[in-house]
């Protein structure tokens, strides 16, 4: 097959345009489809990006889940298509002690090691970090002073993940407010509280941990806690002290006056 030069150049141009724009459209579509920060993943899941990258979308976890909690995302759900997620208001995670979803996963998306506090300790579903319960106080009727402890009673880690804070009802001046408080050290994000919340739209709901948590940074320390020690001076700081000494030596040196 012989081609004229003009035809060759034309087809090369067409090809590169096709590859260029096609590739651009394809990669941006893939990136857009995979960008889903507001989604709750099964227990033992990797960070969202790593999770999406390693997930084979095979549905083993969905089939292993005895409560039909987990679902595979559809293309129009705004979640990477085919990856597992759950919506606690519908069906929360029941925190099976034998975590069948994690053991069913063939990839590194769900791993038992992520629900172990350390390699020596045994894995426990109570260490799962699927999300964090957040309370909207203005719509929580317990904060209004109406007696409701639905979330507190439903919490599988009652008195650890959710406690009741008791104070005086400022409206009646003679009753108590029993206000639920979430503790992020214990909350697994299972979502049972969100499921049972009695308000029209749940006043307690699960957010992904990276959304619902802050980060202090290294420059604040709890000096009253043993593990938070003031760091020992680093090498470069020592170096600075040496420089001060040499500078002082230089100033005190008689030679400077003779110059």
């Amino acid at each position: 097959m012989k081609m004229s030069r003009r035809k060759t150049i034309r087809s090369l141009l067409e090809g590169s345009l096709f590859v260029g724009f096609g590739g651009l459209a394809w990669s941006s579509a893939t990136k857009a489809l995979n960008k889903n920060d507001l989604v709750l993943r099964p227990p033992g899941a990797a960070s969202n990006k790593q999770f999406v990258q390693s997930c084979l979308k095979c549905g083993q976890c969905v089939e292993a889940c005895p409560y039909d909690t987990l679902k595979l995302a559809a293309p129009n759900d705004g979640i990477s298509p085919g990856t597992p997620y759950f919506e606690p208001r519908d069906i929360p995670c029941y925190m099976c002690t034998d975590y069948p979803c994690i053991t069913a996963c063939p990839s590194e998306s769900l791993e038992v090691s992520r629900i172990q506090k350390s390699t020596e300790e045994e894995a426990s579903i109570n260490n799962a970090q699927m999300g964090l319960a957040v309370i909207h106080k203005e719509t929580c009727i317990a904060y209004w002073g109406i007696q409701c402890d639905a979330c507190y009673r439903a919490c599988p880690l009652i008195d650890k993940a959710i406690t009741l804070d008791i104070d005086k009802n400022q409206v009646t001046k003679k009753h108590a407010n029993l206000k639920p408080i979430v503790h992020s050290d214990y909350c697994t994000g299972c979502g049972k509280c969100e499921q049972v919340c009695v308000t029209e739209k749940a006043a307690i709901f699960i957010l992904p941990r990276h959304i619902a948590t802050g980060k202090v940074g290294d420059h604040y320390l709890k000096s009253w806690e043993k593990q938070d020690k003031i760091p020992t001076p680093q090498k470069d700081q020592k170096q600075k002290n040496d420089d001060v000494q040499s500078a002082m030596d230089y100033l005190n040196n008689d030679d400077i006056l003779n110059e």
Binding site: W26, S27, A29, T30, K31, L33, N34, V52, Q53, K57, S80, P81, G82
Partner: peptide, 8 residues
């Protein structure tokens, strides 16, 4: 860094 075809 994502499986490009598998995603779509």
């Amino acid at each position: 860094g994502y499986a490009a075809f598998e995603s779509i």
